[in-house]
Amino acid sequence: MKFYLCIDDTDNLDSIGTGTIAEQIREKLVARGYGPCSLVTRHQLYIHEDIPYTSHNSSMCFCGEAPASALADIIEIASGHLDAVAAEGSDPGLCVLEFDAERDYQELIAFGKNAKKKILTKADAISCAQNNRLHLSEHGGTGQGIIGALAGVGLRIFGSDGEVKAGMKNIEINQHYRVSELKELPELTRVLELRTKEPLDDAVEVEVCGRTKTVLYRHEYVLFVVRSAAGIYQTINKSEIRRMGEYFYEQ
């Protein structure tokens, strides 16, 4: 079976990040013999003063393969890890979905999209979880993290939202790379021109202009680049990618 797992609200200002905890859970699942598992993606949710996020309101999600009988074990491993490492004062939530390719997940995807633009409640999340037969659990504090955890699964299933965690960390800034070289990175499957969404040929060179990230776009890890007036393909800074986040999923 294919599963999706997402966590949210596990950190405080002194703790390790939610993304690192997601990676630790993934490592535990792989050590148990499950997998392969995907990279972790970070899903930006609504920024609003009435939402009690630590500093940026994002959730962390990955998917993987496991035997059909493993769902309860996956939930137990993830829950145990969250209970052990979630930070004091945090409000952790866990969502695990056994994916059914025959099922319509439009309500879940809509929940994820809505969590990017309006305030949702725990009751909203519980209702959506029941309708879609997925696991949703609170792990301390107010348990408010179930909202982001559920939204992250919806957005990951949607397939066009989220930055790849730790992506492009080992790429040197102000260097040129051929597309074929970039595609050797696990966090990158395609290089697309931002305006046309056309893929670049393997032989084309890309100038890495600053810190950048690959993003989940149409279920692939994509590096977006722009063509300069001089005809050079250049990466987009991370701050610009964050700004674009709100309309990637509308296309």
């Binding site: 390790i16 990040g17 993304g19 690192t20 970070r42 500093s55 940026h56 994002s58 930055e163 965690k165 730790a166 960390k169 600053g210 810190r211 800074n237 991370k238 701050s239 964050r242």
Partner: peptide, 16 residues
């Protein structure tokens, strides 16, 4: 410094 995935500014030492 926050964890790397939450950096927004190009400069590592930045309020952002």
């Amino acid at each position: 410094q926050d964890v790397e995935e939450e950096w927004v500014a190009q400069e590592p030492v930045s309020c952002y």
